[in-house]
Lab assay of single mutants.
Amino acid sequence: DETGKFLVLALYDYQEKSPREVTMKKGDILTLLNSTNKDWWKVEVNGRQGFVPAAYVKFL
Rank of each mutant, 00 (worst) to 15 (best):
Y14S: 01
E21Q: 12
V57Q: 00
K17I: 07
P53G: 01
E44M: 10
T31G: 06
F59M: 15
S35R: 12
K5F: 12
L60E: 08
N46D: 10
F59L: 15
A10R: 01
F51Q: 04
D1W: 09
G50F: 04
T23R: 05
N34I: 07
V43Q: 00
N34T: 07
Q15C: 08
Y14H: 05
T23P: 07
N37E: 11
N37Y: 09
L60D: 06
V8D: 00
F51Y: 15
Y56R: 05
K5C: 08
E16M: 12
R20L: 13
T3E: 12
L30Y: 09
A54G: 04
I29W: 06
D28W: 08
M24Y: 01
D13A: 07
K5Y: 11
L32K: 01
R48G: 04
K42L: 15
L60I: 13
Y56N: 05
G47E: 07
V57N: 00
G47S: 06
S18N: 13
D39C: 11
D1S: 15
R20C: 11
N34F: 06
L11S: 04
N46H: 09
K38W: 06
V8A: 11
N46T: 06
D1M: 13
L11H: 04
G50S: 02
E2M: 12
Q15H: 15
M24T: 03
K25D: 04
Y56E: 02
D13R: 02
V52D: 00
A54K: 07
S35E: 06
E44Y: 06
E21F: 05
G4W: 10
K38V: 11
Q15E: 15
V43P: 00
E16R: 12
L30W: 01
S18F: 06
E21L: 05
N34E: 15
L7Y: 15
K58M: 13
P53K: 03
Q15L: 13
D1G: 14
E44D: 09
Y12R: 13
Y14P: 01
E44H: 05
D39N: 13
V52K: 00
R20M: 12
G4T: 14
V22M: 10
L33G: 01
G50I: 03
L11K: 07
L30I: 09
F51H: 05
V45R: 13
A55Q: 13
F6Y: 13
S18P: 04
G47P: 01
D39K: 12
G50N: 01
D39L: 12
E16S: 15
L7A: 06
F51C: 08
V43G: 00
V57R: 00
E2V: 14
L7V: 09
E21D: 06
T36P: 04
Y14T: 01
Q49L: 08
W41A: 05
A54E: 03
V57T: 04
W40Q: 03
D13L: 02
K25G: 05
E2H: 13
A55V: 10
T36V: 11
V45M: 13
W41G: 00
R48V: 09
S35I: 09
E44I: 07
V52H: 00
L32H: 02
R48S: 07
V57S: 01
P53M: 03
L9Y: 13
W41M: 05
K25V: 10
T31M: 13
K17R: 13
R48F: 06
L60G: 05
G47N: 10
V52F: 00
Y12A: 11
T3K: 09
G27R: 02
Y56H: 07
T31Q: 11
A55F: 09
T36K: 13
D28Y: 04
V43T: 01
L30A: 10
L11N: 04
L30P: 01
G4P: 12
K25L: 09
F59C: 10
E44S: 10
G27K: 02
S35W: 13
A54P: 04
Q49W: 07
Y12H: 12
V43R: 00
E2P: 13
P53W: 03
Y14V: 01
P19G: 09
K5R: 13
F6D: 09
Y12S: 11
D13I: 02
G4Q: 13
L60W: 11
G4C: 10
K17Y: 04
T31N: 10
V52R: 00
F6G: 13
V45H: 15
W40V: 03
L9H: 06
K42A: 08
D1A: 15
E21W: 03
K58G: 12
E44N: 06
V52M: 02
L7W: 10
T23C: 05
G50H: 02
M24N: 00
Y56C: 08
N46I: 04
S35L: 08
P53I: 02
P53R: 03
L7E: 07
S18K: 07
R48M: 08
T31A: 09
E2R: 05
Y12E: 11
G50L: 03
A54D: 01
L7I: 11
V45Y: 11
V43D: 00
F6W: 13
E2F: 06
D28Q: 12
L7D: 05
K25A: 09
A10N: 01
Y14I: 01
K42G: 06
D1C: 10
W41L: 07
I29Y: 07
R48T: 08
D28A: 07
L9D: 01
L33K: 05
V8M: 09
K25F: 08
M24V: 12
F51N: 03
V57G: 01
L32Y: 04
Y56K: 07
V43F: 01
F59P: 13
L11M: 11
K17L: 10
L7S: 09
T3L: 15
V22Q: 03
N46Q: 11
W41Y: 11
V57A: 02
R48H: 09
L60T: 08
N34W: 07
P53Q: 02
Q15W: 14
D39G: 11
S35H: 11
G4L: 11
N46Y: 08
Y14N: 01
G4A: 12
K58W: 09
Y14L: 01
S35V: 09
N34C: 09
F51S: 03
K25P: 00
F6E: 12
L33M: 08
T36I: 10
Y14F: 08
K17E: 09
L32I: 07
Y12V: 12
K25C: 08
P19Y: 08
R48Y: 06
F51M: 09
V22P: 01
W41S: 03
N34S: 13
R20G: 15
G27Y: 04
T31V: 15
E2A: 14
A54S: 15
K25R: 13
K5L: 12
